[in-house]
Design a protein around this nucleic acid. Structure first.
Length: 271
DNA sequence: AGTGCGGCCTGTCCGC
DNA sequence: TGCGGACAGGCCGCAC
C-alpha cells in the first residue's frame, strides 16, 4: 500500500533508468483506472524524452518537454522496468516502450491508481494544486500544524491524513507517527498543545525518513522500482498489532476506527 | 469551511 | 472444497 515512502522508493529506483530515455510507444490496455487514462497521453508522449522523474505527495511525475505524465499507484499499483518482450501479466494496464528496448509496465489489480497527462505545469493540475506541505518542507513545523489544527474538531489521526494539511501520511504511518508522538488518535486536532504539535511534526518526519531508508513497507503488494520489497514492516510498533503488548509499556495495543480506517494505539502511552 | 461518508476495485481471508 | 460476504484502503466528490 504505497504511501509516501513507497512512492519515493519507486521514484529513486526508476529515476536513474528513466531519465534521458525516449518513450517510443504507449499502449493503454485498460484505460479505466481511478480516472480514465486520457487519449492525449498515447497521442503526445511517444517521441518525448523523459527529462526528470519527480514526486509530489504520492504522485509520480514524468516530465517531458511536451507535458507531464502524472502517475498514482493507488492501493495496489506497481511499476516495473522490463525487457520489452516480457509477456504481459494480469492487470498490466499500461505499457510505455522505451528506446533502449525496455518498457515501463503499470500493473494495478484494484485500479485505484491513476495515469494522467498535462501540458500545464503539473503543480497547477487540479489534483496537485490544493495539496498541503511536503513533510520534508522546511515550512512543515509545529507552528504550521498548530495553526492548521486551530478550531478543528476532527480526530488527530484524520487531521494528519488530510492531504490538504500534509501529504504522504497514509494509514500505516499515521498510526506509527501518533504512537511515536504519544498522542491518542481520537484527540480532537484543535486541542493539541504546542508541545504535542511539535512532537507530531518531528514524529511524522522521522517515521517517513526511516521508512524511506528501509525501502518502504511491504505488507502484501508493495515492491519498489527495483523489484525489491521494503523492510519497514519490521519496524511497525502499533499498526496491525492489536492485542500485542506495547513495545514501550506492555499494555495490549487497542484497535478502533477513525473515519472508517483501522486505527491502532496504546491506551497508556497515547493520551 | 469543516466534517463525515459513499464509492470505486479486486484479492484475501473467514465462517459456514 | 466451495461459496458468499466482510474487509482492506487513497482519495475524490458529495451532502450536511
Amino acid at each position: 500500500m504505497p504511501e509516501l515512502p513507497e512512492v519515493e522508493t519507486v521514484r529513486r529506483g526508476l529515476a536513474p533508468h528513466l531519465t534521458g530515455q525516449i518513450v517510443t510507444g504507449v499502449v493503454v490496455r485498460q484505460p479505466r483506472l481511478r480516472w480514465l487514462v486520457p487519449d492525449e497521453l498515447a497521442a503526445q508522449l511517444p517521441g518525448q524524452t523523459i527529462r526528470r522523474v519527480e514526486r509530489r505527495a504520492k504522485y509520480l511525475l514524468l516530465r517531458t518537454d511536451a507535458g507531464t505524465a502524472i502517475l498514482h499507484l493507488g492501493m495496489t499499483g506497481r511499476l516495473r522496468l522490463l525487457p520489452a518482450a516480457t509477456p504481459l501479466q494480469k492487470h498490466d494496464h499500461v505499457n510505455l516502450a522505451l528506446a533502449n528496448g525496455q518498457c515501463l509496465r503499470f500493473n494495478d489489480s484494484r485500479r485505484f491508481g491513476a495515469l494522467l497527462w498535462t501540458t500545464e505545469p503539473p503543480e497547477q493540475h487540479p489534483l496537485l494544486q490544493a495539496l498541503g506541505l511536503e513533510p520534508f518542507d522546511a515550512a512543515f513545523s509545529s507552528a504550521y500544524l498548530r495553526q492548521r489544527a486551530q478550531g478543528r474538531t476532527s480526530a488527530a489521526k484524520a487531521f494528519i491524513m488530510d492531504s490538504h494539511i500534509v501529504v504522504g501520511v497514509g494509514n500505516i504511518y499515521a498510526n506509527e507517527a501518533l504512537f511515536a508522538a504519544g498522542i491518542n488518535p481520537l484527540r480532537p486536532a484543535g486541542q493539541l498543545t504546542e508541545a504535542e504539535c511539535d512532537r507530531l511534526a518531528v514524529a511524522i518526519r522521522e517515521i517517513l525518513t526511516e521508512a524511506i531508508r528501509q525501502g518502504g513497507t511491504t505488507l502484501r503488494d508493495f515492491i519498489g522500482g527495483d523489484g525489491e520489497p521494503g523492510y519497514f514492516q519490521q519496524s511497525l510498533r502499533v499498526y496491525d498489532r492489536h492485542g500485542v503488548p506495547c513495545v514501550a509499556c506492555g499494555q495490549p495495543i487497542q484497535r478502533c476506527r477513525v473515519g472508517q480506517r483501522a486505527t491502532y494505539y496504546c491506551p497508556r502511552c497515547q493520551r
